[in-house]
Nucleic acid binder design. Structure first.
Length: 422
RNA sequence: GCCGAGGUGGCCCAGUCUGGUACGGCGCAGGCCUGCUAAGUCUGUGGGCGCAAGCCCUCCAGGGUUCAAAUCCCUGCCUCGGCGCCA
């Protein structure tokens, strides 16, 4: 969430940012009204608690002198109930304010383009040449099934729709992609992490707007645990409630985990294959840094992800995500979209966000400066999600005879140059 | 899962039995001292409200007892050690 002092002192700045996001900004004024009430209640509560402390002190003194304390005790006895009432009022106001604050998104970076939805994202870069194919292209599902690399039908029986079994070379490809991504990140001196696949509610709430995300997460029955939707969350929560030394920043992590998502509301979209599934593997980049560092770090993250797709020889473009498509936590976001020749379009394979201090305030991750403790900036970016990369590889590297060329960088790890029908 | 020991400011730790509002050290920042360095010494060092003076909160979390809780009682969570189980 935002710093409430920003809403107190510069409400217009916050409102303007919300308007650019096509959002109704009335929550800002509601917060300001409730905040004033909250401060009044807080001040009154403090006054009563002060009186209580003074009385306790006086009682101690009088008792020491052997004097009568019954009058003081009588006054003191009346206070706790009054204080409790005020505390309840205060908690109530505070939670109303929190609720509203969660609806107020991060301040936009000035370079974010205005727009209603993903069609108005701004293309900032293209890489690679789009190959010409002189035969009828097949979908990744058709290719993979023909090569005995994928079984979604039995996955449906065993787990349900939107699950899949990878088979044979596809398993090796999946592992190879992870390996290449992790090695790339290690060469950039990122700390590699294999993270927990589950995390508790507090950790998730630190990372996302739970009211919007609850539908996406798998909950473990009877436990305070959720299956991780992305290692962004386990990495973000890694330093939760910590105060970091300024000289250790930026802290750069690359986390690997499986990711589990209900994908609620995605009915009818990409229902076949591995593009949009309930479970996939992903290497994620995550950075904790100072406000001075974060915009440079943001460019580095997208650069790192680009380099991986360059190694894989997959053509892509980078878009600067527009205001309407941005999401509340990010101040700015780049997507990398790989070219999918069968679908004849670019599809999102990487999402790279600078969340500035918005997420850190929730997670309570600070760093020490000579002027006091400040919230860090957090950034996250896909390095590589195997499911989406697989789709791109099978679409781009398919050949007329149904075989698929393995990108050079993966060949040693997969153990062949071409995957051919058996 | 069982038994035991713990959880105190950025870190380490005292205080808990015997209730009166957190001791000391380290680190960090600043001042003083010094030819320089080291040492020494003083002040500050979490969150909130307030223009300010100042006040409130904070001893894992949540309840309870009490005029008053780090301290007593109950519940829960977590960590460490031992035992059991185990890929």
């Amino acid at each position: 969430m935002l710093d409430i002092s920003l809403i107190r002192e510069s409400p217009e700045v916050v409102k303007e940012s919300m308007r650019r996001r096509q959002m109704d900004a009335t929550a800002v004024d509601e917060v300001r009204t409730l905040d004033e009430q909250w401060r009044d209640v807080l001040t009154e509560g403090n006054r009563l608690r002060h009186r209580k402390n003074v009385l306790a002190d006086e009682i101690k003194e009088l008792r020491k002198q052997g004097k009568d304390i019954s009058e003081k005790i009588e006054e003191s006895k009346a206070l706790p109930q009054k204080i409790r009432d005020l505390e309840e009022k205060e908690r109530d106001l505070k939670s109303q304010i929190q609720q509203l604050m969660l609806q107020i998104p991060n301040l936009l970076h000035e370079s974010v383009p205005d727009g209603l939805d993903d069609t108005e994202n701004e293309e900032v870069k293209r890489w690679g040449t789009l190959k010409e194919y002189d035969f009828e292209l097949k979908s990744h599902v058709d290719i993979m099934e023909a090569l005995d690399l994928l079984d979604t039908e039995r996955a449906g029986k065993v787990a349900g729709s939107r699950f899949f079994y990878l088979k044979n070379e596809a398993v090796l490809l999946d592992m190879a992609l992870i390996h290449v991504a992790l090695q790339h990140m290690r060469s950039k001196r990122f700390n590699l992490m294999e993270t927990p696949y589950m995390l508790n509610r507090k950790s998730v709430e630190g990372c996302v707007d739970m009211s919007a995300f609850e539908d996406v997460l798998y909950k473990i029955d009877g436990e305070d645990l959720y299956l991780t939707a992305t290692s962004e969350h386990t990495l973000a929560a890694y330093h939760m409630d910590e105060i970091l030394e300024e000289e250790v920043l930026p802290l750069r992590y690359a986390g690997f985990s499986a990711c589990f998502r209900k994908e609620a509301g995605a009915h009818g979209k990409d229902t076949k294959g591995v593009f949009r599934a309930h479970q996939f593997n992903k290497v994620e980049q995550f950075v904790f840094c100072t406000p001075q560092q974060s915009w440079d770090e943001h460019e580095s993250l997208v650069q790192n992800a680009e380099e991986i797709f360059q190694k894989l020889e997959l053509p892509y473009r980078v878009v600067n995500v527009c205001t309407g498509d941005l999401g509340g936590v990010a101040a700015k976001k780049y997507d990398i979209e790989a070219w999918m020749p069968k679908q004849e379009t670019f599809r999102e394979v990487v999402s790279c966000s600078n969340c500035t201090d918005y997420q850190a305030r929730e997670l309570n991750v600070r760093y020490r400066t000579s002027e006091g403790n400040e919230f860090v900036h957090t950034l996250n970016s896909t390095a590589l999600a195997t499911s989406r990369a697989l789709v791109a590889i099978f679409e781009n590297f398919q050949q007329e005879d149904g075989s698929v060329i393995v990108p050079k960088v993966l060949r040693d790890l997969v153990g062949c140059d071409v995957i051919t029908p058996q």
